Deep mutational scan, measured.
Amino acid sequence: MKATFQVPSITCNHCVDKIEKFVGEIEGVSFIDVSVEKKSVVVEFDAPATQDLIKEALLDAGQEVV
C-alpha cells in the first residue's frame, strides 16, 4: 500500500531525518520519501503498518499532518 501525507511543518533536513527515523521504526514500512519542497511524505507499507500508525509517528516526530 502507498500513502501520501501533507506535512506543512517540514522545513529542513533535520525534519527529514527525524521523520525517516520515526516512520522507519514502524514494522511493515518499506519505503519513505520526504520532500521539503512539496512538504509531503510518501510511504509504502504493508501490514502491520497502517496509515494511522504512520500519522501517529509523524506527530511523535513533532510534525503537523493535514
Rank of each mutant, 00 (worst) to 15 (best):
V43G: 00
E64H: 10
V41S: 02
E27D: 10
Q6L: 14
I10D: 03
K55V: 14
D60W: 12
V7W: 05
S35L: 06
A47T: 08
P8I: 10
D33C: 15
T11I: 11
D46G: 10
G28Q: 01
T50D: 04
G28V: 04
S9H: 06
V42T: 13
A61N: 03
I10L: 10
S35Q: 08
E25Y: 08
I19R: 00
A3V: 14
V7A: 02
I32T: 04
E64F: 12
G24S: 11
S9Y: 12
E27Q: 11
S30K: 14
Q51C: 15
V23T: 03
V34I: 09
P48Y: 02
D52R: 12
L59R: 12
G28R: 00
N13K: 14
Q51N: 07
E56G: 11
V65C: 15
I26C: 03
K39E: 05
V23W: 03
S30V: 13
K38N: 13
C15S: 11
A57R: 06
I10K: 00
I54G: 02
Q63N: 05
S40Y: 14
E37A: 12
G28I: 02
H14S: 15
V41L: 05
V41C: 04
A47K: 09
V29E: 00
E56C: 10
K2H: 08
E64R: 11
V43L: 03
V42P: 01
T4A: 07
G62D: 06
D52Q: 13
G28H: 01
L53A: 13
C15Y: 08
I19E: 01
K18M: 10
D17C: 10
V34S: 02
D60N: 14
K2F: 08
Q51K: 14
K21Y: 09
F5P: 00
I10S: 03
F45Q: 00
V65W: 09
F5L: 01
C12P: 07
F45G: 00
D33H: 14
N13H: 14
V34G: 02
T50W: 03
I19L: 04
Q51E: 14
I54P: 00
C15A: 12
D60C: 12
F22W: 09
I54L: 04
M1D: 06
A47N: 06
A61K: 01
F5S: 00
C12A: 11
K18D: 06
I10F: 06
T4L: 11
G28M: 01
K21E: 06
G24I: 06
E64G: 06
F22T: 07
I19D: 00
I54K: 03
E64Y: 12
S30D: 04
E64C: 15
K2Q: 07
L53Q: 11
E56M: 14
A57N: 02
D60A: 15
S40R: 14
S40Q: 14
I10E: 04
V41P: 03
E25A: 15
F31D: 04
L59I: 13
K18V: 10
V34E: 02
V65N: 05
P48Q: 03
G24A: 08
Q51S: 11
V66Q: 09
A57E: 00
F31C: 09
E20C: 10
F31E: 05
E44S: 10
T4N: 06
S35M: 06
E37Q: 10
V23C: 03
F31K: 13
D33L: 13
K2P: 01
E56A: 14
S9V: 04
E44F: 15
F22V: 11
A47Y: 13
V16A: 08
F22S: 07
F5E: 01
A47G: 05
G24R: 12
S40V: 14
F5G: 00
D52P: 05
K2V: 11
E56W: 12
T11K: 12
V66Y: 10
K18C: 06
V16F: 05
V65K: 05
V29A: 03
A57Y: 04
F31P: 01
D46R: 14
S30T: 13
P48C: 03
S35G: 04
I32L: 06
S30Q: 10
Q6C: 15
V65E: 05
D33A: 12
D52T: 09
V29Q: 02
A61V: 04
T4V: 13
Q63P: 04
I26W: 02
S35N: 11
K38G: 09
I32V: 11
E44K: 10
E44I: 14
E20R: 15
E44Y: 15
S40T: 14
I26M: 05
D46K: 14
N13Y: 12
D52V: 10
D46F: 14
V42D: 06
I32D: 02
V42R: 08
I54V: 05
A61T: 04
L53E: 07
E37R: 09
C15L: 09
V23I: 10
V34T: 04
V23A: 03
N13R: 15
N13V: 15
L53H: 06
P48L: 00
L59Y: 09
A57C: 04
K2S: 09
C15T: 09
L59Q: 09
V34R: 02
I54W: 03
L58N: 00
V65H: 05
P48V: 02
E27V: 11
E64V: 15
P8W: 08
V23R: 04
E20Y: 15
S9E: 05
P48E: 01
I19V: 06
F22C: 04
L59F: 09
A3R: 05
E64L: 13
D52C: 12
V16R: 10
E27P: 11
D52M: 12
T50H: 04
V34W: 05
V42F: 13
G28Y: 02
S35I: 07
G24W: 13
Q6D: 09
K39N: 06
A57V: 05
A3H: 08
D17H: 11
L58H: 01
K38M: 12
F5N: 00
E56R: 15
T50M: 03
V16T: 05
A49P: 02
P8N: 09
V65F: 07
V41T: 00
A57G: 05
Q6Y: 15
V16G: 04
N13D: 10
Q6H: 14
E25L: 14
G24N: 07
L53G: 05
V66H: 08
V66G: 07
V65S: 05
E27H: 08
F22Y: 11
A49C: 05
V41H: 01
N13A: 13
A3P: 04
V65R: 05
K18F: 07
K39D: 04
A61H: 04
S9T: 12
L58C: 02
I19P: 02
C12I: 07
F31H: 12
S40F: 11
T50K: 01
I19Q: 00
K21V: 06
L59N: 07
S35W: 06
S30A: 10
V23N: 03
Q51F: 15
K21L: 08
V36A: 05
V41R: 02
A57L: 04
D33W: 15
A47R: 09
S40D: 04
V7S: 01
V7E: 00
I26H: 00
E56S: 13
K2M: 09
E64K: 11
Q6K: 11
F45W: 13
K18I: 12
E27F: 09
